[in-house]
Simulated scan of single mutants.
Amino acid sequence: MISLDFVAQTYHKPLISLVFEAQTIHRQYHQADAVQLCTLANIKSGRCPEDCKYCPQSARYKTEAETYPLLPLAEVITQAQAAKANGSTRFCMGAAWRSLPDGEEFDRIIAMIEAVVDLEMEACVTLGMVRPDQAQRLAQAGLTAYNHNLDTSAQFYPDIISTRTYRDRLDTIQAVADAGIQVCCGGIVGMGETDRDRIELLHTLANITPQPQSVPINALVPVEGTPLADQAIVDPIVLVRMVATARIIMPRTVVRLSAGRTAMSTAEQALCFMAGANSIFTGEKLLTTANPGNSADALMFEQLGLSAWESLPHLPQEKLPV
């Protein structure tokens, strides 16, 4: 059990000391200058009944986000092949559902997962809430990971979402873990939360059993038409603190620098990599919001001397006292 006080003390350390500690731990568990490239495909867009205040895919808000039904299998395979050709080793598929539907659409999701696995890529999906029996079927199809973010602290969560509870999210995470699927679970900063909310989110994540194998750290991308459209862009130093604290309290986890990179300079992203981030999402879009794109990321990797994972690394087994 990692205490809330420990997380708070870590988060509030002087930045240089915090990043140094995080980098030291990072090097014991991960390749120092290697970053996993992932691609996130929007396989079903819009018309979601949820009221998440940050999301342009909610049916409750008038945004310019595209709306379309579940894509054909052939189109998803083409996207996955292109992602692999651009260096991605994980292909993530997102569908704007409140919960994973049964029936024909579930069958199509299974076929997509199997196709990605056949390409020798990690297969990840984010499909809303899932039941234990559904999670078992996803596992049988070879699913690597299921993404289901907590978004923020339990206390601040009702200010952002009212159509499902924090407990609903934790139940889905538990169902996924019980099925033997890797848990991908993180949050969003810049929605009006406090440092205390960020610390409580990290504390909750660190005490999930087992700890999430993947933690995406997202910065809010304000979208016209959503309730958070006028929210100020979060200070990138907040992202650095989030990444570094996550690295220290979850040493083995892949920390993914996710949404919001378009507002960050190369130097600011470099600080996040120094703090322990070792994955990014590539491509022109993250679901519906802008992303730097493959050419910009290639230039950044060249400037920073970073390399992309060519395969999944075998990590050292030593354990750190946390």
Rank of each mutant, 00 (worst) to 15 (best):
P227M: 07
Q182G: 06
E105N: 13
S45C: 00
W309V: 04
P216T: 01
Q317T: 10
V183R: 06
A275D: 09
C272W: 03
F20D: 09
Y146A: 07
P56W: 04
H30S: 10
Y166A: 05
L119D: 13
Y68N: 07
R196V: 09
D178W: 07
I248L: 06
E105H: 13
H314A: 14
A34G: 07
D159Q: 14
D297S: 11
G186K: 03
H30V: 09
R27L: 10
P49T: 06
Q28W: 12
V35L: 02
Q174S: 12
E268L: 00
Y157D: 00
L150I: 11
E268M: 03
F281V: 05
A145K: 00
A154R: 07
H12C: 13
N149D: 11
V176Q: 01
M264G: 02
K285C: 09
L18W: 00
I110A: 05
F156H: 06
Y54P: 00
T152V: 06
I233K: 08
L220E: 00
L127Q: 06
G293K: 06
F91I: 13
L287N: 06
E318L: 13
P69G: 05
L100V: 01
M242R: 03
D151E: 14
G225Y: 04
E114R: 15
Q317S: 07
Q36S: 10
E224S: 11
V322C: 13
V176P: 01
E310P: 05
V35W: 02
Q174E: 13
H26E: 08
I199R: 04
G94T: 10
Q231N: 10
A263F: 15
T163I: 08
H12R: 12
T78A: 15
E318P: 04
S58I: 01
T63R: 01
A277T: 13
Q9W: 00
T89R: 14
A270L: 11
E193Y: 02
E200V: 03
E66T: 08
M191K: 08
I160A: 03
Q269V: 10
S265L: 12
I249G: 00
M250R: 00
A229T: 09
I109N: 07
K285F: 13
L202I: 14
N218W: 09
Q140K: 15
A145I: 02
A267W: 14
T89I: 15
V117K: 14
D230N: 11
M300D: 03
G283D: 00
G187I: 05
A41H: 14
I43V: 15
M264I: 08
A277W: 11
L205D: 09
L15P: 01
A32T: 15
G187Y: 02
G180T: 08
N278C: 07
A232G: 06
T144C: 07
A175F: 13
L306I: 12
A139W: 12
L70W: 05
L228V: 11
V130I: 01
T78S: 15
T194C: 03
A95K: 02
L299V: 14
W309Q: 05
F273K: 05
A135N: 08
D133Y: 14
C48K: 02
Q28S: 12
Y29N: 12
A141E: 03
C92K: 02
E224A: 15
E302I: 12
Q134C: 04
L286D: 02
H203I: 13
